[in-house]
């Protein structure tokens, strides 16, 4: 059985880990290389870096972080934030990222997803979808860290991204992010009904039960940040909660 993936997400700014509550109030929390390696040793199934406020100037800083992380982390590493071109994807992959996550640039230019998938294969192209509920039963895409509305229906967008060659969708609820109220399960269910791709749920984890709910809603990966960074839970606790609820998880292995 394919196991549920537990994915800690590190927000990185200028080469340092920060973390956000509703995408504001960032505070420095350390070295991304050390943290990623520590999560790998804790049994994380993947690690995601999100380059917060990525700019042209600090791109090389992020590539250096990716390169140093990949030298000691032998599980998949996804990197998102500021990925705007096929060249940006290429640089991340060459630095050692396994997947590149495209967000705002996909909205600005959907064909970028197709071109990147054709160049490197769908397996390394993640499309990140930041969605906010606007009326009952309707979610729309927001970009630029949740500040910019696009009017695009999130579920239809997910389908379109699948058609263009995305290999995975990272679905973040802007309503739930930072609230600790759990994933937006209805949003996940609706995307799952329409799209066959692997689905990573993001935004809102505050308790162990929330991981189980995400799996039940159809997510194949469960991403969380603050509950892990703050030491509220360890990766193994999230896996144990899933296992008790009957979901397959990868057993702990001795650190590599």
């Amino acid at each position: 059985m394919l196991t549920l993936r537990i994915i800690p997400c590190l927000d990185v700014k200028e080469g340092r880990v920060v973390k956000g509550v509703n995408f504001v109030d960032l505070r420095d929390a350390g070295d991304p290389v050390e943290q990623a390696t520590a999560y790998g040793a804790q049994g994380a199934d993947e690690v995601t870096f999100l380059d917060i406020g990525a700019t042209h100037e600090n791109r090389d800083t992020m590539l250096d972080v990716v390169s140093r992380t990949a030298a000691s982390l032998f599980i998949p590493l996804t990197v998102g934030g500021g990925v705007r071109s096929v060249d940006d994807v290429r640089r991340l992959l060459l630095a050692g990222a396994d997947k590149a996550s495209i967000n705002s640039a996909a909205v600005a230019e959907p064909e970028l997803v197709r071109r990147a998938a054709e160049a490197f294969g769908s397996q390394c192209i993640v499309v990140a979808i930041d969605a906010k509920q606007v009326t009952p039963g309707r979610w729309e895409i927001f970009t630029h860290g949740g500040r910019k509305a696009t009017g695009i229906d999130a579920v239809g967008w997910a389908e379109r991204m699948a058609e263009l060659g995305a290999g995975e969708l990272l679905v973040t609820s802007m309503d739930r992010d930072g609230t600790k109220r759990g994933f937006d399960l209805e949003l996940l269910r609706r995307i799952r009904q329409r799209v066959r791709l692997p689905l990573v749920a993001s935004g809102g984890v505050g308790s162990l039960e929330h991981f189980v709910e995400g799996a039940e809603a159809g997510a194949t990966g469960l991403l969380a940040a603050s509950v892990f960074h703050d030491g509220v839970y360890r990766i193994a606790q999230a896996k144990a909660a899933l296992a008790v609820a009957g979901w397959p998880v990868r057993p702990e292995e001795k650190a590599a």
Binding site: M1, L2, T3, R5, E168, R196, P198, L199
Partner: peptide, 12 residues
Amino acid sequence: KPLPLPQMGWNR
């Protein structure tokens, strides 16, 4: 029911 594709993740 169809399982997600690609198979992406850890399997035994």
